[in-house]
Nucleic acid binder design. Structure first.
Lengths: 337, 337
DNA sequence: TTGTATGCGTTATCAG
DNA sequence: CTGATAACGCATACAA
């Protein structure tokens, strides 16, 4: 039963025709007679012939494999982004190697090395928290492998990028909070290495300015994605002489920790502080007293568009391709009635 | 910059030695002189030489790639299992193709076909909800590709399998509920195709018997993972003439829906009904009134052990390998103080 | 110690 | 319409 798998040669030998004829017949090459095609295809079926991708890849000098690097898969946001990308890739005949950096620069470097050894035809990456230096990524660019940043992009690199329109999201959130009477609005933001942080900040600041609310930099705190730091950032805000009455957070995860912190440590105001995050995490529906709102992003579309852009770069390599910056809208979703 | 990548031939030509010498030198073959090795390695570095895995795979007739098929990645449990598997695979020089069936048999078949075309060296699979027939999987077995079922296994197939010891988990849960005075304990279970459902059921039933509690089959309901059905199953239990005072659920997701259903539709008893699920979902920490407990499983270890077993099967192919059944313990984690 | 020859499965090119 | 041949990058058995 488990003898070697059938190859084109086997088919050719059995049918006493040449391998190249078989190859063409299987792929419906116009130069092959209908009768021959039929015979070949029939036998191929009988032998459970499946073309050896390894050989094709080798021959074509193309791996038909794309790499996608994300910080982790515990975040539904990234999972959805991967799915959008993967679906698009599969539909176009590509495999996808999914890699998690776990927010480690070291690991990210190793992954890129593996991906390079695997001769991926293209790469989509959301850089790790630690990725301030991008030499390892630029190596890919030098090797001529198309790259698309997505979700997170280093602030000083001008490359193709697909991400949420977090700027508009922030201004919308601020506008909504102002409409509910808030004048002291806090921001818990993430690494300033990323454009996605800077854009949230700019949206927040411009949102305030649009409503003639003075910008107060003590109301802006930085955190990462650890519960510890999220709690600390929340405390710093709440211990201000004039604490905020509403907080916009970089992500729902951060918002949930802030929510928890308020409940445990600032119980007296916990219910009056209104919170908005990014992501519209589906788990929020299970909370008894949900936060105010979240900016619902479209990670699936982000993944899809990254794939579209990447394949375009692969199929139409142009030296001076102007860096594309694609922004996918996000929308305020209000939880409390 | 983006000219073709260096190959062994390039190095050989530059150094005016033969490709095979280069090949051996790079892999520290004992037959090569130290001086030559040095020269080769130095130049390889300079040229940023990375061995072409595609060629190696082709040559070796091995893909150094493993497949892992799971229902989806939205469930942290599967994500952790994938991670355990992946880490183990990477550490042993294998790549991993992660595939999601999205609980669709059709998609599962397509995925297996792709994996076969990619000549994966082995496969780990948690079958979809719809997978009652396993012909498509048996094809792999016939092709001589090692397979390990994990997490979910069809009830009528005797193959290698790694999963949680859900039987013991269920008896433990029942024992704990009994110790808290419960005599009417419900069970919301999943598809009876799976051993993992049957074992939960057996553990539940035997647990009751051990405590001289009569088994009442109306207390056992089946659901899938949709919120709709989870709500329905909960309603069916609560609308019994003599409803349960505690419910054991197939998964935390099911338990959370039951929790929600109770709160919304049976508010008067919502707080007295004690709930136990499987999975110890980390999001539970954010609930104000968490359920009673959850059986904490060890998905990472399950993934790891699946990898270990799979690699063993790949490296020591034995025709009459006795099917291994590996059970990873799970432990009751109590949330309410 | 080093080099030469061969083949893995497929496809592209060119000749018949 | 069909077939022969070469090539992709590497590893290996064998020859020198």
């Amino acid at each position: 039963m488990d003898h070697k798998r059938a190859t084109i040669k086997d088919i050719a030998a059995t049918l006493r025709i040449s391998p190249s004829t078989v190859s063409k017949a299987l792929r419906d090459h116009p130069n092959i007679g209908v009768v021959t095609k039929e015979r070949v295809k029939k036998l191929a079926q009988q032998l459970h012939f499946v073309p050896n991708q390894a050989a094709i890849r080798f021959k074509q000098q193309k791996s038909f494999t794309l790499g996608i690097v994300i910080p982790n898969m515990l975040d539904h946001f990234y999972v959805a982004a991967v799915e959008g990308f993967e679906r698009f890739a599969y539909d176009n005949g590509y495999n996808v190697l999914i890699c998690q950096s776990h927010e480690s620069l070291q690991r990210e470097k190793e992954l890129l090395c593996t991906l390079q050894a695997n001769r991926v035809d293209g790469l989509v990456i959301a850089i790790s928290r630690e990725t301030a230096d991008t030499t390892h990524i630029n190596e890919f660019v030098h090797a001529g492998i198309p790259i698309v940043y997505f979700i997170r992009k280093p602030i000083n690199e001008e490359y193709h990028c697909v991400c949420s329109d977090v700027y508009k999201g922030a201004t919308d959130a601020v506008a909504y909070l102002v409409s509910r009477g808030h004048l002291r609005i806090g921001l818990i933001n993430a690494s300033s290495f990323w454009t996605t942080s800077r854009d949230r900040f700019l949206g927040y600041r411009d949102g305030l300015i649009q409503h003639q609310i003075p910008f107060d930099k003590s109301l802006v705190q930085e955190s990462d994605f650890t519960q510890e730091h999220n709690f600390q950032a929340t405390r710093r805000l709440m211990q201000l002489p004039n604490p905020p009455t509403a907080i916009l957070s970089f992500k729902d995860q951060v918002m949930l920790d802030a929510h928890n912190c308020l409940r445990r440590e600032f119980a007296s105001n916990a219910d009056t502080i209104e919170l908005i995050g990014y992501g519209a995490n589906p788990m929020i529906q299970y909370l008894e007293r949900p936060p105010l709102a979240s900016l619902k992003e479209q990670p699936y579309e982000i993944g899809q568009k990254s794939g579209l852009l990447l394949l375009d770069l692969i199929n139409h390599p142009q030296p001076g391709y102007e860096p594309q910056l694609i922004k996918v809208p996000c929308e305020l979703q209000v939880f409390t009635a």
